[in-house]
Simulated assay, not measured.
Amino acid sequence: MTRIDQTFARLRAEGRKAFVTYIMGGDPTFETSLEVMKGLPAAGVDIIELGMCFTDPMADGPTIQAAGQRALDHGMNTDRVFEMVRAFRTADDSTPIVLMGYYNPVYARGVDRFLAEAKEAGIDGLIIVDLPPEEDSELCLPAQAAGLNFIRLATPTTDAARLPQVLQNTSGFVYYVSINGITGSAAPTADSVGPEVARIKAATDLPVVVGFGISTPEAAEVMAGVGDGCVVGSAIVKLIGEGRPAAEVLARVAELAEGAHRG
């Protein structure tokens, strides 16, 4: 079992939902980003999604695009992402870390090298948003052979014919994108998300975590309530982009976590 599997097993035993947060690695600087990352578990975060900055983030909205550019401007790269994870792991060997990003940086590094370094650094899973199931042999299957979960996204447009392909080699959890569009878009509703989550859960034993458009503790509670947890990203990245101190960012994260854990 990976740390992700262990975390969901523990949460199920405790009767709690998962609170997952996204931050961009190196935003706005390596040091500030690491400070926030180190504080996330104590603020109530169960799983950390760590963004890999990329020059062409086609699935991301303006908030996360800007975060990636800030990180790039301060010299963030794949080496430094791994360095950040290693630094986090010196004090925390239990919180799962999922790298989220695009395939180009993985391909440029070489799949075998990337996976070996990710595993050594202490990464538990990957979300690579621009690799469809038809390309599972490219990264998904090698990642799972290396002991990493490969987490796939399902969306409102993933119909009954497509869903089995999406789920076929997915592990860890399914990330349900609750709205059509880019990150940071309009808030989803339980009426629209609930039936879709139920449809996915009928087809898999994996946990289903709901993300996109969640920015308040109330929304986190509702979305965690219809799934096995929720993801908050842009709302946190926005505070970092405004230059808020790490303590203020983490205080807001704690409020969001309380909402998610009530779900």
Score class of each variant (00 low, 15 high):
I182P: 02
A190L: 08
V174Y: 05
I179N: 03
G243A: 03
I151V: 14
R152L: 08
S234W: 13
R152K: 13
A203W: 00
D136P: 10
A202G: 07
I236F: 08
V177N: 05
Y176M: 10
A146E: 04
C140Y: 01
I214K: 08
A203P: 00
C140R: 11
A145T: 10
R244D: 07
P245C: 11
R199E: 08
P245N: 11
L153C: 05
L131N: 11
T170L: 04
S185N: 15
A187F: 04
P132S: 14
E196R: 15
E218V: 03
D228K: 02
G194L: 05
D159F: 07
P142A: 12
T189I: 08
Y176I: 01
M223S: 05
D159K: 14
I240V: 15
V193H: 00
P133K: 13
A145S: 13
S185G: 15
A143D: 12
T189W: 08
I151M: 11
E196K: 14
A143H: 09
S185L: 02
S192T: 12
V193P: 00
G194S: 13
D191W: 11
A146M: 07
P217Q: 02
G181M: 06
P156C: 06
T158K: 07
I240A: 12
A161S: 13
E138H: 12
I200P: 08
L167E: 02
E134K: 15
I200A: 06
C230G: 00
P142N: 13
L153T: 07
I151A: 07
E218P: 03
V222Y: 00
P164S: 03
A186I: 06
D191C: 10
G172D: 04
A187G: 12
C140S: 12
L153D: 05
I182A: 15
D205I: 05
V237I: 14
G147Q: 08
K238P: 02
F150C: 06
V237C: 10
G172L: 09
T204Q: 05
V210R: 01
V208Y: 03
D228G: 10
P217H: 01
I179T: 08
T157Q: 09
T170M: 09
G211D: 00
V237L: 12
G147P: 06
G241D: 12
A186W: 04
P132H: 14
V174A: 03
S192L: 10
I200N: 09
V232F: 12
D136G: 07
I200G: 02
V174N: 04
T170Y: 00
A161C: 03
R152Q: 11
A190Y: 07
S234F: 13
V222L: 04
G172W: 02
I200F: 04
Q144R: 15
Q165F: 14
T155W: 04
K201E: 07
V231A: 05
P207L: 01
L163N: 11
L153H: 08
S192K: 12
T157I: 04
L163E: 07
T157Y: 01
P156W: 10
L239C: 06
Q165Y: 15
V208Q: 03
G194C: 04
P195Q: 05
I151G: 06
E221A: 15
L148T: 09
G184W: 09
L148P: 05
A235Q: 09
G225L: 01
G227R: 05
A143Q: 13
G225H: 02
Q144H: 06
A143F: 09
